[in-house]
């Protein structure tokens, strides 16, 4: 499904944001997805970093514009500008640090206050390789995601488990929401796509995503 094509042609351009507490692994998730790289010593993200990757869904080329944001409180006021126009979000926590899971509620709240209420959201429990010191159970995270009408998956950027699936899952979902409608590419490329109304039957899709999830 996720065939990579480097050229600049695409049928759809979707903006997706990566949010969550500092140190949960957002930057490594993105570098794993965009370049298949992982670094043990990733510097803290200051402001925002940006990467793109094009994937194939149902014969269409979907270009994902992914914005990796700083996790620390101080940077939230600044990063809120980056939410503009996003149609998907990965809300990331570190499954070995419980407080980062608890804070996802605040991240979701902030996300929803800046974006279309129908934005496709996936809750991502990262660092699944640290399963021996897990502090959040799959059931608990799943229940929380269901309550928040979000998808849920667990990933390991280190072991490259489920990372591509998490991103392509969100992108495929956005694509299905957009359906056959041709997305007008607005004149502000940092705020794409403008005015797109998304209506999702969350229930069915979520079940499908959970089935496809890792755990």
């Amino acid at each position: 499904m996720a065939a990579y094509r480097a050229d600049e042609e695409y049928d759809y351009l979707f903006k997706v944001v990566l949010i969550g507490d500092a140190g949960v692994g957002k930057t490594n998730l993105l570098s794993r997805f965009a370049r298949d790289e992982f670094s043990f010593e990733t510097k803290s993200t200051i402001g925002v970093e940006f990467a793109t990757r094009t994937i194939h869904v149902d014969g269409k080329l979907i270009k994902a514009q992914i914005w990796d944001t700083a996790g620390q409180d101080r940077y939230r006021a600044i990063t809120s500008a980056y939410y503009r126009g996003s149609v998907g979000a990965l809300v990331v926590f570190d499954l070995s640090r419980r407080v980062t899971f608890e804070n996802t509620a605040r991240w979701l709240q902030e996300l929803r206050s800046h974006t279309d209420p129908n934005i496709v959201v996936m809750l991502v429990g990262n660092k699944a390789d640290l399963r021996h010191i897990r502090a959040v159970s799959v059931e608990e995270a799943q229940a929380f995601a269901r309550k928040e009408k979000a998808f849920f998956t667990e990933t390991s950027a280190l072991e490259s488990i489920n990372v591509a699936d998490a991103f392509t899952g969100v992108l495929t979902q956005i694509y299905h929401v957009v359906g056959r409608k041709v997305l007008a590419i607005g004149d502000d490329p940092s705020a794409l796509p403008i005015g797109q109304t998304i209506n999702i039957d969350m229930k069915d899709d979520r079940q499908a995503a959970n089935k496809a999830g890792c755990c």
Binding site: I46, G47, V48, F50, I78, A81, Y82, D187, D188, P189, S190
Partner: peptide, 9 residues
């Protein structure tokens, strides 16, 4: 439309 905030921050 490259907002300077995106890099100059």
């Amino acid at each position: 439309k490259v907002n300077p905030q995106f890099y100059a921050f």
